[in-house]
């Protein structure tokens, strides 16, 4: 058997720098989960189809099963654990909870990141735009309807309010419905 090949990876995850020696065979999603211990990123297929492994790489959403861990070297990564700030949920998280935008929750991290990238480029998407933005994500539980609603609610909340509130898309109060 061939000797193992180890690659040094320095990467920033959720704002914290990490260095690790990783098996060159590892996928980014495997490293995130098993080397860096962030289990919130899920594996549903390892073929790039389900989107459960979605994270942000250098500011753009990516399926972390389509990337080698080695390719994370020098890159900045955000995972679902990095969405909340100082314990406060991001508006997208809050909206997914409020609107029951998940059932088993397995697809949830990917859904939230697809929603986030959409709202960054199109703050007031219509239903078709929301559905299109979820193209890379599968959900088997919800039929997507409450996910779409959650994204729409998040859009309302993020584009409403004062400038100051908009600056920070996190909140600690649970909005009443």
């Amino acid at each position: 058997m061939e000797t193992k090949s180890i690659v040094a990876v320095r990467t920033t995850i959720n704002g914290r720098e990490h260095s690790a020696e990783v098996d060159s065979r590892l996928l980014l999603v495997e490293a995130i989960r098993d080397v860096f211990g962030l289990k919130g990123t899920h594996i549903g297929c390892l073929t790039g189809d389900c989107g459960a492994c979605t994270v942000v790489v250098d500011g753009k959403i990516a399926k972390s099963c389509l990337m080698l861990a080695a390719s994370a070297d020098g890159r900045e990564i955000q995972t679902v654990e990095g969405l909340a700030r100082d314990g406060k949920l991001h508006q997208i998280q809050q909206s997914f909870w409020d609107e029951y935008g998940f059932q088993c929750g397995y697809c949830l991290p990917g859904m939230m990141f697809s929603a986030k990238e959409l709202l960054e480029t199109d703050p007031r998407p219509d239903e078709a735009a929301i559905r299109h933005a979820l193209q890379g994500n599968l959900c088997r539980c919800t039929g997507y309807q409450k996910i779409v609603q959650a994204v729409s609610t998040a859009a309302d909340r993020m584009s409403g309010g004062t400038n100051e509130e908009r600056e920070d898309d996190h909140r600690d109060d649970t909005p009443t419905r």
Binding site: L38, K39, A84, L89, Q93, W97, F102
Partner: peptide, 15 residues
């Protein structure tokens, strides 16, 4: 709302 829903949205629910 789903009980303990924040665990899920924070990526802390364990499978």
């Amino acid at each position: 709302k789903k009980l303990k829903g924040d665990l899920f949205v924070r990526g802390k629910a364990r499978y």
